[in-house]
């Protein structure tokens, strides 16, 4: 087991949208090298937590990542710090090909600007770094089983494959922390199992810390080291998956939901 030093610390996060208290003093510590799930009923504030981490919302409270005060950083600085994410309702560059989308994940790692881009194949050009990035992007989509879709525009693809493209794009950014918002939505059980395998692999082999939002309790049980449960913007439970699932407050929160 890896160390339990928190790489990411959310302290007393609160955020409201008009009358809705989306987050109420939520504190979560994510240990380095773990897979940390966030679960809870619809509207509990799960996506809001990820949006705060990636700088799209500005909550009250504090967010520390790897010794940095994240609330002082602009959204586009996240990849440089080592944070990548996927979105619940897909945020791809729709008219671009799968490979171009995935390669966009490498934006912060490459250096070439206009001149080195325009001079592509000359000595000053960026052909080498582009090729390396492309190889890495191909590797990522092959790992996710969509290797043959590289040249297709993403808007042609079914929902599940678009989710895979998002994950590949996040992988190519080589994050330390990967935030996944329902990456398995729209997949059947065997597809979910395959994707869970990939997430595990990234976590074990590349030592990427993962925060994942997932509704499928079975999946959550299998892959999580730690589970945080949110309900109406509040943290109602946290701990190992088995322990959390037994918690009466959690069972109550899930009552009336599709899944126990």
């Amino acid at each position: 087991m890896s160390s339990s030093v928190p790489i990411l610390e959310l302290a007393e996060l609160s955020l409201r949208f008009g009358g809705i208290k989306a987050l109420q003093a939520v504190s979560i510590g994510v240990a380095a090298g773990r897979i940390h799930s966030i679960i809870g009923p619809n509207g509990a504030g799960k996506s809001t937590v990820l949006n705060c981490i990636s700088g799209m919302y500005r909550p009250q409270g504090a967010i520390r990542f790897d010794g940095q005060d994240l609330l002082r950083r602009r959204p586009h600085e996240r990849p440089l710090l080592g944070i990548a994410r996927t979105f619940q309702n897909i945020a791809l560059f729709r008219e671009e090909s799968v490979l171009d989308n995935v390669m966009a994940g490498g934006h912060h790692r490459l250096k070439s600007g206009i001149l080195r881009g325009a001079l592509y194949w000359t000595r000053f050009g960026c052909r080498e770094e582009e090729r390396r990035l492309r190889d890495e992007a191909v590797e990522a989509i092959e790992l996710l089983g969509i290797g043959e879709l590289g040249e297709r525009p993403v808007s042609d693809l079914p929902f599940g494959d678009q989710k895979r493209v998002e994950l590949a794009r996040a992988m190519v950014s080589r994050p330390k922390l990967l935030l996944l918002d329902e990456p398995m939505a729209g997949m059947n059980d065997s597809e979910k199992a395959e994707l869970a395998q990939v997430v595990r692999k990234l976590n074990r082999e590349k030592h990427i810390t993962v925060v994942i939002i997932e509704h499928d309790v079975g999946v959550v049980r299998r892959i999580s080291d730690t589970v945080t449960v949110l309900d109406f913007g509040k943290k109602i439970a946290e701990g190992g998956p088995e322990e959390v699932m037994k918690d009466p407050a959690v069972r109550k929160a899930y009552l009336g939901e599709e899944e126990p």
């Binding site: 586009h76 791809l92 560059f93 966009a104 912060h108």
Partner: peptide
């Protein structure tokens, strides 16, 4: 190349472009 992808990203989805750095 990199800037071309950045242009497309800004056009297609500025929010996601930002998250990509």
């Amino acid at each position: 190349t990199r800037m071309g992808r950045a242009f497309a990203a800004v056009r297609e989805n500025p929010r996601a472009a930002e998250i990509m750095g």
